[in-house]
C-alpha cells in the first residue's frame, strides 16, 4: 500500500513539474530574461579583470556564496569528525587487530604512487593558480590535491604519512585568510570581499587583483578538508 501511494505521489509531482516546465519561457521563441547574466557578461572584464568569467562570478560578484559553500564543506567535515569518533571499546579492539594488519598495498602500487604524487601536486597547484585564466580553479584544484594525499593514505593505510594536526591547521589557515582578505577591504573603507589590488594585464598570471589569492585559499581549504575527511574515516581515533 505504501509503495502504491509513494508511486502515486511521485507521479503527481512529476506531472506538476512537467506542467510548470511547460509554462517556463525556455521552450518558447522568446528567450529567457538574462538581466543579471547580461550585466555580468558586459561588465566583468572592466570590473573584475579575470579572463575566466566564471571566476569573476564565483569570487567577485558572488564571493559571499563561495564563502558560504566553503563553510558548508567545513561543517560537513566537522560533523563527520564529530560523529565518527570511535568509542574506547572499539579502539581497544582495533589495537589488537593492528598487530596482524600491517601491510602496505604492495610494491607496484606504493612506488607508482610515490612517482605520481609530486606530479599530482603540480597539476593541482597549476589548476588553482590559473583559476582566473582558464577553466578550473580552487574547488577543482583542491580536489586534485586531496586525491594526491588520499592515495598516499590508501597505499599505506597503517603508516601515518600525513599529520592530521597539520591538515586541520592548513584548513583553518585557508578559511581564515579568505575571510581576512575580505575584511582588509572593509578596513580600507570598502565593502566586504571587494576585490583589491590592480587588475594587472588582462589574461596574464598576475591579474584580477586578489582573486588568485582567494582561489589559493579555496584550493587549500578544499584540499585539506577532503584529505581530512579521508583521514577521519581511516584513523582509529579522530584527533581533535
Amino acid at each position: 500500500m505504501t509503495k502504491y501511494s509513494a508511486l502515486l505521489f511521485i507521479s503527481g509531482l512529476v506531472f506538476l513539474l512537467m506542467v510548470i516546465t511547460g509554462l517556463l519561457p525556455i521552450f518558447s521563441d522568446s528567450h529567457t530574461p538574462m538581466l543579471v547574466g547580461k550585466a555580468i557578461l558586459e561588465g566583468a572584464k572592466d570590473q573584475v579583470g579575470a579572463a575566466n568569467v566564471v571566476t569573476s562570478v564565483v569570487l567577485g560578484y558572488r564571493g559571499l556564496d563561495t564563502l558560504g559553500e566553503l563553510s558548508i564543506l567545513f561543517a560537513a567535515a566537522s560533523v563527520v569528525g564529530l560523529v565518527l569518533t570511535k568509542s574506547s571499546f572499539n579502539k581497544a579492539a582495533s589495537a589488537n587487530n593492528d598487530k596482524h594488519d600491517h601491510h602496505d598495498s604492495g610494491f607496484v602500487a606504493v612506488n607508482a604512487i610515490d612517482l605520481i604524487f609530486p606530479l599530482l601536486l603540480v597539476v593541482g597547484m597549476y589548476i588553482i593558480t590559473h583559476g582566473h585564466l582558464t577553466p578550473g580553479g580552487g574547488f577543482q584544484g583542491g580536489v586534485v590535491l586531496a586525491v594526491a594525499f588520499s592515495m598516499l593514505v590508501i597505499v599505506r593505510p597503517r603508516r601515518a604519512s600525513i599529520n592530521h594536526g597539520m591538515v586541520s591547521i592548513i584548513e583553518s589557515f585557508a578559511g581564515v585568510s579568505f575571510i581576512l582578505i575580505g575584511v582588509i577591504a572593509l578596513f580600507k573603507g570598502q565593502s566586504f570581499l571587494q576585490p583589491l589590488l590592480s587588475h594587472g594585464e588582462f589574461g596574464s598570471l598576475w591579474s584580477a587583483g586578489t582573486l588568485p589569492l582567494l582561489y589559493l585559499a579555496v584550493g587549500l581549504k578544499v584540499g585539506a578538508e577532503l584529505a581530512g575527511l579521508l583521514l577521519a574515516l581511516n584513523s582509529d581515533e579522530v584527533v581533535d
Partner: peptide, 23 residues
C-alpha cells in the same frame, strides 16, 4: 554601516579558527 557584515563574518571566522585554538 558596511561593517555590519561582521555580524555574519565574525562567527564564521571563529568557526574556522576554533579547531586550531583548541590545540
Amino acid at each position: 554601516m558596511n561593517s555590519l557584515v561582521l555580524l555574519m563574518v565574525l562567527p564564521l571566522f571563529a568557526a574556522f579558527i576554533i579547531p586550531v585554538v583548541a590545540k
